[in-house]
């Protein structure tokens, strides 16, 4: 199995686990932990892609809500402090990417001529 095939296989396993989680969560779990979801079915297919992708997070939140461990105060603490750090890191990465990309950029060296270094054995001098 090549490296690429290995990663593809891992992705398949991840998505399969997501499908199993989704089947349980969207039919049983949701109604238990969110009263707004009871009786609402049309929107559920929209949630399938997310469960496939972030199923560990879904399982964790399901566990937290199911066991009454949800902390109401934490719901009102937005991650605002990171704004400045994120802005500076993002700006830095953009600058580095563009500078690096433009620095290694090549133009067709059309003016460089082929150069014969040695003549073939047996060829006239």
């Amino acid at each position: 199995m090549t490296g690429g095939e290995f990663i593809v296989r891992l992705a398949q396993i991840w998505l399969t686990a997501g499908a199993v989680t989704g089947a349980l969560f969207l039919t049983i779990g949701m109604d238990r932990i969110d009263e707004d979801a009871r009786g609402a079915y049309v929107f559920r297919p929209l949630l399938v892609p997310a469960v496939l992708l972030i199923w560990p997070l879904v399982l964790w939140r399901w566990f937290v809500l199911e066991t009454g461990r949800d902390n109401w105060a934490a719901r009102h603490r937005p991650p605002r402090k990171q704004h400045l750090v994120v802005a500076i890191v993002l700006a830095g990465l953009i600058l580095i990417s563009l500078t690096a990309g433009l620095m290694v950029r090549q133009s067709w060296p059309g003016d460089v001529a082929p150069e014969q270094l040695t003549r073939a054995v047996g060829e006239g001098q």
Binding site: P114, E115, Q116, T118, A120, G122, E123
Partner: peptide
């Protein structure tokens, strides 16, 4: 095949 020597190409 006919050898043509060693070359430096770009």
């Amino acid at each position: 095949p006919e050898p043509l020597g060693r070359w430096k190409l770009t």
